[in-house]
Design a protein around this nucleic acid. Structure first.
Lengths: 206, 206
DNA sequence: TAGATTGTTAATCGATTAACAATC
DNA sequence: TAGATTGTTAATCGATTAACAATC
């Protein structure tokens, strides 16, 4: 297979397929599933499903369909969620704390190991919350390899917090602060701007 | 006819322009701005900016640029955030409560007027939280025209909560429950699946 | 007039969909 | 063999980018 262009739309659909397959396996004890069935159940095109699945595995057989186990394994590996990656969360306000309790991300390969805030706080959901300072950041990062930072800090400090974390070696950010961060080319930012989503909602209401 | 068919990517960029313009006006007291400057500052293509702006206003003049006030007004009206629309939030768990305090959505035309949960709770951020039952829903909806429901309920009840709200006349949903809702054609669902975003993050880490 | 900047038309690129051949 | 289903190649569609004409 000679696919390698990293299509973001494919990556957005893969967890949907994964959920669906896991569900199907659990609820119906099914062994196989056809692209037609997936397409119908998920309101997608049949061809699109086949094309997507072809990117992640080769278990499809005419008249039979795709073997669920192979499909699940293929998607899991493709989106890299079989390896648990460690995250730190910065900014334990309401949203931050909500994310600390958001166990579902574990299923997709993320685990929050520590949080930071302006001051020490009581732990939340068994995750310790430290003061955001060099010593504490280094201490956390030395103990475990940290792959990603989740930013839930106020807008006005987001850039400086981000800079500091880049200094400490963080390369990937999941950014909930409603601001566009300015970073070097090798740094990856995934923005989750809920205010902008609100704007989208707003435009849908007439 | 809802603007659902109009370019979603444009709608995603418009609030970015809006923020930028408001900021520029406030911080620099600028009267005009060129597409080149916007493009540079926001890391977008110059032509794309011009094309986007042409969709929302006609204030561009060669050698001068776009008049900020007209631009701001044009974007605001285009994304419909000059009219405040009322929302109810269902599911006042951690995430729900975090959203209740999320004043930024007001800027984009959304206002949460009431929340519901399994049981009555104390108000949060001055927003009352009622038990989710027919009587209470009707009472809230009779008092004010409610345009949108924000769903922060657990996965397993999301569909039934959604059905009930459709019964009561809600047409637009901002859905934070990690599940794909099954709804009639005239109902609009904007999914905000944070778990799926986590999956995207996961795939970025190698 | 020269230079800067907008706005439009054409070309390109990427993603989706259609047509169909291959396989079981 | 007939029917169902996968997988591939070609066509279409939409969004972005390039080229350039129009304007100030």
């Amino acid at each position: 297979m000679l696919q390698n262009s990293v299509s973001k739309s494919l990556y957005k659909r893969l967890p949907i397929y994964l959920d669906y397959c896991l569900d199907l396996k659990e609820k119906e004890n099914a062994m196989y599933v056809s692209s037609k069935r997936i397409a119908d159940d998920l309101y997608l095109g049949e061809v699109q499903v086949r094309k997507d699945l072809a990117s992640v595995c080769t278990s499809g057989r005419p008249k039979i369909g795709y073997k669920l186990d192979i499909l699940i394994d293929g998607i899991t590996k493709y989106i890299n969620c079989h390896i648990l990656k460690k995250a730190v969360l910065v900014g334990a306000g309401k949203l931050g704390k909500a994310l600390l309790g958001f166990d579902e991300i574990r299923k997709y390969g993320l685990e929050i190991t520590a949080a930071f805030d302006v001051n020490d706080m009581e732990e939340e959901c068994n995750i310790p919350i430290y003061q955001f300072n060099d010593q504490n950041i280094e201490s956390v990062m030395n103990k475990k390899k940290i792959d990603v930072a989740i930013l839930c800090v106020p807008k006005n400090v987001a850039q400086s917090v981000c800079n500091k974390l880049i200094d400490k070696g963080i390369k990937v950010f999941w950014n909930f602060a409603p601001i566009r961060l300015n970073v070097p080319n090798d740094i990856i930012i995934q923005n989750e701007n809920l205010a902008y989503s609100a704007s989208l909602i707003s435009s849908l209401i007439k």
